[in-house]
Design a binder for these strands. Structure first.
Length: 127
RNA sequence: AAAGUAAAUCGCCUUAUCGAUUCUAAUUUUAGAGUAGGAAAGUCCGAACACCAUAGUGCAAUCAUAGUGGUUAACAGCCACCAGUCGCAAGGCUAGGAAAAGUGCAACAGAAAGUAUGUACAGGUAAUGCUGUAGUGAAAUCAGGUAAACUCUAUGUGGUGCAAUGCCAUGUAAACUAACGUUUGAGCGUGCACGCGCGAUUGUUAGAGGGUAGGCAGCUAAAGUUUGCUGGUAACAGUAAACGCAGAUAAAUGAUAAGGGUAUUUUGUUCUUGUUAUGAAGAGAUUCUAAAACAAGUUCAGAAUAAACAGAAUUCGGCUUAUAGAUUUGCUUAAAUA
RNA sequence: GACAAGGUGGCUGAAUGGUUAAGGCGACGGAUUGCAAAUCCGUUAUCUAUGAGUUCGAAUCUCAUCCUUGUCU
C-alpha cells in the first residue's frame, strides 16, 4: 500500500455513510473522532475513508476546507504505517471536534494516536 | 510637508519532495498539459437556457420603475447634462413624475388643524375677527404638509427554476382504493373574459403503498479575454491581431521543507540635526564649545513577529456587502501647524 | 445549489405611524403563617436584531446588513 489516496479510497455512497453512523463503532482522541465499520467493497479497495467538519463549529467554507485538507493529508501519510498488513476492509469517517483551528503537526500527531488505539482495539477483539 | 478627494493596479514569490482532480497520448501505470476570486460571498436586479400538450389576446389585480437624453441582448446597471442638497474646495449624496382629479391622516399643545373659529393687547369701523402683534405647534387664516398613505399619470410585467429537463438502472407499479367528471365539457397556465382545440388506452384530487437517493447527458467556447487603431465628451460601438482560460459531486485546486521579498517591533552600528556645562571666556548680565548623555531622523547587519476578506457548483451582465497591506495618477486646500 | 418565512424584557406574547410599548409566566421585596405553599400588594430590567432613509414623529413604512428557521428529490 502506498501514500496514494484517490477516488476509489474515498467514502462517497450515502447509503454506506448512513449505515456507518448507525452501526459503526467510534474511538475519540480529542480533537479527532474515528467512526469505523467492518464491511466488504465491490471495487476491491480495502479502506474507504471520509472526513467531516461541522458547520456549527467552523462558519466559513475556507476554514472547513483547510481542516479537511489537513485531515486528508494526515490520513494519507499515516495510512501505510498502520494498515499495510491488514487484509480486512473497513469504512472510516474521521470527524474534527475542536472549535479552534489547527496545524499540520498537531493533527498528524493526533492522527497517529487514533490509529494506534484503533489497531490495539481491533487486534484485542480478534484475540 | 500634512490633510482631503476621485480613479486605477496588485492581493506574497521561487524551488524540491509527496499527493488530489480533469483532459490528451500511449496503454495498464506511466508521460505531458491545465486546475480557484476580486469579490468565487449575499442571492438584490437583468438575461441566456429548459419545462409547464401546441400557440395566443384583452381587462383587472399584483409587482416593479420614475428629472432629460444616451448606452446595452437586457436591467432598478452604466455615461452625460439639469435641478436640489452637504462641503472652504476638489468632490459626495438624491425612491428627483402629480397634492388645482378625488379619498384619507396630523398624538400632545392650542380658541381653532376645513364643517373652521376666536383669547389678550394695539389699530380701525356705523357695526362685525375687519387688520396687526403675542401665545401653541412640525405646520395657523393664506393655505400648506404627507404619495417609502390610498390614489392618478407614463412605461413594463405569465409561472417555475439545472434539485429545471431528457435518458439508463432498480421496483409485480401506466398497478390498488375513494370522490368528482363523460361531448350538455372536469381538467388543460395562479383572477375574469375570449380564443384554441386536446381529451377516457396515460382525466383531476385525496388516500394507502412500492422503488430510488446511483450513473450519463445538460456541463462549460462564451452577449469571451488581452493589446492596438478608428468614431464618440463619456458609457459604449466598430475593426485587426493574438490567446484558447476550473469543472469537483461527503466537494479536486493541497501538504511539508528550504530560500527570497514586504511591513512592524527590537538590538547593535554609520552619519546628520537639536537640547543640556559639569568645560571655556567675562567683574557681571551673558556668550562660545559639545567630549559625554538624551531625543529625533537615517545607513548597514542580526533577531522575533505578522501577512487581509475569503473557496467555484448551469452560465453570463450588473448591484450590494467584506477586505491587512502595498503602489501609481489627477485634483483641492478656507482656518490652523511647520 | 435554488426559493421562501421570521427576529419585541430571562421565557412567552400583543400593538391603527402619536406618552421610552399591553398582558401572562418568572425573579426580587413585603404582607399573611409557628414555618411553608396558595393568596394579596409592590418592585425589577440598557426590551422593538444592527445601520441608514422617508416623516413633525418609526416597534410599525422603505433600503441595506446580520442571525434563525423552513421547502425542494
Amino acid at each position: 500500500m502506498s501514500f496514494k489516496y484517490n477516488k476509489k479510497d474515498k467514502l462517497k455512497s450515502k447509503k454506506l455513510i448512513d449505515k456507518l453512523f448507525n452501526e459503526g463503532k467510534a474511538i475519540t482522541v480529542y480533537p479527532l473522532r474515528l467512526v469505523y465499520l467492518k464491511t466488504d467493497f465491490d471495487d476491491g479497495s480495502t479502506l474507504k475513508t471520509g472526513v467531516s467538519v461541522s458547520k456549527k463549529l467552523h462558519k466559513t467554507a475556507v476554514a472547513r476546507n483547510r481542516i479537511k485538507r489537513l485531515l486528508r493529508e494526515a490520513y494519507r501519510l499515516n495510512k501505510p504505517l498502520y494498515f499495510n498488513n491488514s487484509s480486512t476492509s473497513y469504512a472510516f469517517m474521521i470527524l474534527y471536534l475542536s472549535k479552534d483551528g489547527t496545524t499540520f503537526d498537531a493533527l498528524n500527531d493526533s492522527m497517529k494516536r487514533v490509529f494506534k488505539k484503533f489497531v490495539d482495539k481491533t487486534s484485542d477483539s480478534l484475540n
